[in-house]
Design a protein around this nucleic acid. Structure first.
Lengths: 140, 140
DNA sequence: ATAGTCGGTTGCTTTTTGCAACCAACGTGC
DNA sequence: GCACGTTGGTTGCAAAAAGCAACCGACTAT
């Protein structure tokens, strides 16, 4: 499910840019180097999925600015985590984008937390178990 | 960069399965419904990218089990975040996979944390600023 | 020995993406 | 008012990626 929405070459990059405050079609296209028809298609699909909101800043012809919905902003932990991963393993200088706490401008961290032990959990202390459903699905 | 490695329809799903403990080719194929040639290709690419490790459990012909490397396990915060997002917005019952703290079997949480304020940050308190580099790149 | 499974590879079809051309409506200069 | 550039698209065609079916060698179970 999740990846049927954002699991292509461009959607996450578009979302990252929207997150970063890029709003207009042409800005997105230039920044990402994406073909216009694909960008158009992805923005519409993300809109249909309720992740992106279109706000016309002009009618005749309709011209939109693109914003993240609540559902879209709710992807931020994923984006932060992916960006940090890229920074750790592919850093060749300063990271291109830093997400910060708007109140103090500090770069944010992602923490995996155990509510029972009330402590930080690092990656080799993570197990997995299936949910109650029988069939496996593509929820992530 | 990041998305040139994991930004396709299957890689994240494969990683999620590996994370979940699926080890063998045929298991992956059945679970995901992916074509064999694509699975073969993705596993090789992930191997080349240093994300997946191949351990032969049989020679003649060589047959591998697939494991995550440290670099691969380091994607877990991203996977957790994406799975949680899917659970929140597309839940139709119990989540298909639950990641837990191996010490106490509690389902894990993802927290966005500000090291300066030393507190949890929710999505509408997040800003972004560019890193020092001039050109924009695809690091996440 | 026969059948079935596992982990692939090869070749072909279908789907997705990329690219270039085009277009309508606006803004800008004159 | 008119030419010219910009923005935000759409359309049509070529290229790349993914899906599908067939095959294959080595093992395993009967």
């Amino acid at each position: 499910m999740t990846l049927s929405v954002i699991g292509d070459r461009w959607s996450l990059l578009i979302l990252r840019d929207l997150f970063r405050g890029v709003r207009r079609f042409e800005e997105l296209r230039k920044d990402l180097g994406i073909a216009k028809n694909i960008l158009s298609d992805r923005l519409n699909k993300l809109h249909q999925a309720g992740i992106v909101e279109q706000q016309p800043y002009q009618v005749k012809p309709i011209r939109n600015e693109y914003f993240l919905t609540h559902k879209g902003r709710d992807l931020s932990p994923s984006l932060i985590a992916l960006m940090h991963w890229g920074d750790r393993w592919y850093a060749d200088g300063d990271p291109p984008t830093i997400l910060t706490h708007s109140l103090c401008d500090t770069a944010l961290e992602q923490i995996t937390h155990c509510p029972t032990c009330n402590e930080h959990v690092n990656t080799d202390q993570i197990s997995s178990r299936p949910g109650r459903r029988h069939h496996l699905s593509k929820s992530a």
